[in-house]
Amino acid sequence: MSIIYHLKKPWKNEKRLPKTFYLTLTSFLLFVLISKTLDFFLAISVLSIFVSYYWGEKRIFYLLLVSIIFPIIVFVFFETILGLRFPPGIITNIYYQV
């Protein structure tokens, strides 16, 4: 009882969550779905472009930077320096020449 008393309506919150929050959350679901069915790397790119666009970035160069250029740098870095093998998928299979 004392715990309940101390929490004092813990779920009370005055501010409603904005649309961008739900879109970001949706992008997480999209990430899980794509990484499970299509490709891990593609999932990162799709989430990055989705989030960046809905957070307000409309310039093509920056969208390409976050969705393609940067993930490629990260991918190559992890693959070559850390010797990491990413899970198979439509894009990673091309890289691994499977």
Partner: peptide, 15 residues
């Protein structure tokens, strides 16, 4: 800007 920074942090977090 956050719209560029956070997708990048996401990619590093995931990998």
């Amino acid at each position: 800007p956050n719209k560029i920074l956070w997708p990048m942090i996401f990619a590093v977090s995931v990998c």
